[in-house]
Amino acid sequence: MMIQYFTKNGFALFMMLSLISSLGLANNITHIEDVIKQVQPQGAGRLNFWGLHIYDATLYRSLGKDSSEFALDVRYQKSFSGKAIASRTVDEMKNIGVPESQAMAWGKELAEILPNVEPGQTLTGVYSSQQGTTLFYEGKKIAQIPGADFSKAFFGIWLSPKTSAPKLRAELLGNGCPPPIISGAC
């Protein structure tokens, strides 16, 4: 009886892990846990544009009760220059209501920070109220941008109700609420 139960549930677990791995969502999150202790995925999704698979993203939340800390891990499936990512970030920030002058200033800073990415590589943003936004490339810290204003604008690209990718937002949030910095209470 126990062997049958284990085999049946073990197979289901194996299939679930295989699916997550095939979607590119099974990531090493040590760098996230260096900033936020004890995290778990809240949701994951895929961005497609004109039928092209652009990237997979996973939203991680702290297990701490009432914690505002979270991370967004993006695994690219296409090659992009850091400057192209920064430019798109500016456009998306303006789309959610960030004033153009502020979005452009942040975009200029990001263009100097963000590396070129190849398929399978990750960029991760981690938010904590004490540190602001910490950016990682392939698990290595590349920048820390203090303050809540940048964090709200940057993560709002994916998590704001005004996002240009509402399907991805819904997948990232799953059955949960957005982080407080994005929406306040849920």
Rank of each mutant, 00 (worst) to 15 (best):
D149V: 14
K140L: 07
Q121V: 06
I145G: 08
L114T: 08
M104F: 03
L110D: 04
Q131K: 14
E118P: 03
I113H: 04
P146E: 13
G132Q: 03
V126Y: 01
G139L: 09
G120I: 11
L114Q: 05
E112L: 13
A111I: 08
P115K: 00
K140G: 00
Q144W: 06
T133Q: 07
Q121M: 12
A103I: 09
A143D: 11
I142T: 00
Q130R: 14
V117H: 00
P115T: 09
A103R: 07
V117R: 05
D149E: 14
I145H: 02
K140V: 09
V117T: 05
G132D: 05
I113W: 04
S129D: 15
P119G: 08
A103L: 09
K140Y: 02
S129E: 15
P146C: 08
G107L: 09
T134L: 03
Y137D: 11
L110G: 02
E118T: 08
Y127V: 02
L123W: 05
Q131T: 06
L135K: 02
G125H: 00
A143M: 12
E118S: 13
G125C: 06
F150S: 02
I113S: 04
N116Y: 01
A143N: 10
V126T: 06
Q130Y: 04
T122L: 00
P146I: 06
G125S: 12
K141S: 03
S128D: 15
N116A: 13
D149T: 15
F150D: 04
T124A: 03
G120C: 11
L135Y: 04
Q131I: 01
E112T: 14
G120L: 12
Q130D: 15
G107Y: 11
F150Q: 00
A143P: 11
A143T: 11
I145R: 00
A148V: 10
P119I: 03
A148H: 10
Q131D: 14
A148D: 14
V126P: 01
V117D: 04
P119V: 04
A105F: 11
G132Y: 00
G132H: 01
